[in-house]
Nucleic acid binder design. Structure first.
Length: 264
DNA sequence: ACCTAAACCTGGGCGC
DNA sequence: TGCGCCCAGGTTTAGG
């Protein structure tokens, strides 16, 4: 479910709720698949009494930085949520020193909760919205890559945080076919794609994420970017620019949407 | 490097 | 109502 804009929305929601609160207790319900490298008891022991200093995001990861330097790391997988009030899919409960709690909820249990004594070293590509992700750098990254462009954009080691919705949207905005070889882009196309990626991700954040099925913010509310999608989940609908039918194909086992007329 | 398929899971929607 | 199938914002692993 959640890509960079959804995770960032959640980060912004939850940080003021947890900042400078200590974790008083941790509860787990059928959370075995979700707790990575640590049991429920171990997690509670590791976190108990620790004050949350800030919440950061790196790619699709949330990093709860504790005053001790330890970190609570959460990846939301496909259906993970961070909530200020529980729903029926809660897997881990975090009780705070002010009497409030926040919750990790996950229907499909592809999400992961883990603990690290130090700030985690995540094997991720650049942050697409950071200043150091420049068109020149993007060009270098793409150079010599013979594989499929869309599949590469989804590779978190290549670029962090971009997922299946925003990839299709960015390629549409840039007028580039998802079927292209990554290394075949002309510099003008690299610039267009760079700009498009930043635009769709920024707008995704602005509209608080895309809720096509399970995504909710920390208050349990949907985002609104689903109303602004141009191609994702729009198969058969007319292209906004040329009226051609939006097509769905599969690339790397993932649904891919594009306009066969506007994208080449 | 690059590609494919399968696996990890649950739930919702749809056709019959 | 119910069953069976297909689909899903992600990632990893195995094998070619």
């Amino acid at each position: 479910m959640p890509e960079l804009p959804e995770v960032e929305t959640i980060r912004r929601d939850i940080e003021p709720f947890v900042r400078n609160r200590a974790i008083k207790a941790v509860g787990a319900i059928r959370a075995k698949n979700v707790l990575k490298g640590i049991g429920a008891k171990g997690l509670e022991k590791a976190l108990k009494g620790q004050r949350i200093e800030r919440v950061e995001r790196r790619g699709k990861f949330l990093i709860f930085k504790l005053a001790s330097g330890n970190c609570l790391i959460i990846h939301l997988g496909m259906t993970g949520r961070i909530l200020k009030a529980p729903d029926r899919f809660v897997k881990v409960t975090f009780n705070l020193s002010n009497g409030k709690s926040f919750y990790f909820s996950d229907i499909r249990m592809f999400g992961k909760v883990s603990f690290s004594k130090t700030y985690p070293v995540l094997k991720l590509g650049p942050e697409p919205l950071a200043d150091d992700f420049t068109p020149a750098r993007f060009k270098e990254m793409l150079k010599g890559r013979g594989g499929n462009l869309k599949a590469l954009l989804l590779d978190q080691k290549f670029l962090a945080g971009v997922g299946n919705i925003y990839t299709s949207e960015a390629l549409y905005l840039a007028g580039i076919s998802p079927k292209r070889r990554a290394g075949s882009l002309k510099f003008a196309e690299v610039i267009k794609l760079h700009k498009a990626l930043r635009k769709v991700l920024s707008e995704g954040i602005k509209y608080r994420g895309t809720s096509v099925s399970d995504y909710q913010d920390a208050s349990g509310r949907p985002g609104s970017y689903q109303h602004r999608l141009k191609v994702y989940d729009q198969a058969g609908r007319p292209c906004k620019k040329c009226k051609a039918k939006i097509r769905r194909i599969v690339i790397g086992q993932r649904s891919t949407f594009f306009c066969p007329h506007c994208q080449s």
